[in-house]
Amino acid sequence: MIPVIPRSIFLWLDVNLPGTIFLRESLYGYAAMLTSHAVTMGIFFGLILMMDLRLVGVGSRRSSFSELQKSLFPWQMIFMVLSSITGILLLYSQPMRYYGKAFFWMKMGAIALAGLNALAFHLTAYRSVAVWDTDLKIPAAAKFAGVASIVLWALVLMFGRLTAYEWLTYQYFDF
């Protein structure tokens, strides 16, 4: 597999980032970063899931979709920022470890696709939300966006978890 960013950049980061060795070598650094990443990511995923289940038509049937989406959005953003900060710190502490992991790059790809899916939904199916906001006759395009969002974010979590194992690790290959 060919990573998106050249190896030389990661190699440079691995050596030159200020504090990266401190983070890498500290006794509790990894445990603290990984734990806060996993917990904030779990809450983020849960709040996205609660919105998507309503979009698919199986959850939160007593609320309208736009009301649920608008009120959950700031909280989703808070937990996205928190999990991003802790995730970037993990990457910052061991750039070369993650560079060689296929699951890390698959996770980045799934995040990009999940973002594109949300964007596409807002530019298309969401425009007619007033028509289907309160009833459960949700258009197929909107339901599809909901299912795609659940699947893609679930993949993000799974690829993230799998990054911690040693499978598909190409640390010693030079691309």
Binding site: I43, F45, G46, L47, L49, M50, A154
Partner: peptide, 9 residues
């Protein structure tokens, strides 16, 4: 994730 999402809601 599902548990925490339903809890936080």
């Amino acid at each position: 994730g599902m548990f925490l999402g339903a809890l936080w809601m």
